[in-house]
Design a protein around this nucleic acid. Structure first.
Lengths: 117, 117
DNA sequence: CGGCATCCCCCGTGATACTG
DNA sequence: CAGTATCACGGGGGATGCCG
């Protein structure tokens, strides 16, 4: 429960590593988007707009683009009229599950384990 | 590798859960602080200043206070002259390890697994 | 349908100086 | 030693309107 993988981390390098991950996940709408795409689902831009009513078009496309640039989301363009664009997760994006699950479990510990010393 | 714990999460509730965790971890200096305190270490304010040369006193104390308020860090005051204050992790704070480790492993997948579809 | 371009505001961060 | 107080700024995010 104490060791960090097999690699030799310094406090600084480990923090840097995690910060890179946080930079990918940070952003007002990224996590909702991700959780809507988990399980191999493919959603159109308008599907996501409907699934996340509070997001504006600007923010939705911005967050999608950033996730795409970071290799988490892939964008599939169907050249047809009317236009059709689908969004899904990359394999690497799918593999985020265990990490997110670990965070949820940690949050759950607070309620159960309780009385934080 | 697909399921999220045993609980029934909607995309929104799961995102909310993770976002609460991110809100705790977010902050320019929190992760470095955490990694310096992992392993049950107790460090004085000035120790942390020296361990993290780039941080200002204002930011250091601010991030420590937020971590303390969130139940991750505990503050131990020794009433003596000159003043002595030590910082360490709570049990819950220590239990963050697996989650951070999962993120580092995910980041590592990018390099090894490679060619993100 | 699936975007892009502007304008604006707020808050987290940094620099600097002071205190019990 | 271990903080507090004040000022300034940069960028993430929201609202609104236009385009192929």
């Amino acid at each position: 429960m104490e060791e960090m993988s097999e690699k030799s981390w310094t406090p600084t390098s480990a923090a840097d590593g995690v910060e890179q991950v946080l930079r990918i996940l940070e952003g007002r709408w990224k996590l909702v988007i991700l959780f809507h795409l988990f399980g191999g689902k493919l959603l159109r831009f308008s599907d996501l707009e409907r699934a996340i009513p509070a997001v504006s078009q600007k923010m939705l496309i911005q967050q999608l683009r950033q996730l795409e640039k970071d290799g988490v989301v892939r964008r599939i363009v169907h050249h047809q009229v009317p236009p059709k664009v689908e969004y899904g997760l990359t394999d690497w994006g799918q593999s985020l599950c265990p990490a997110l699950d670990a965070m949820l479990k940690w949050a759950a510990l607070r309620e159960n384990g309780d009385e934080v010393n």
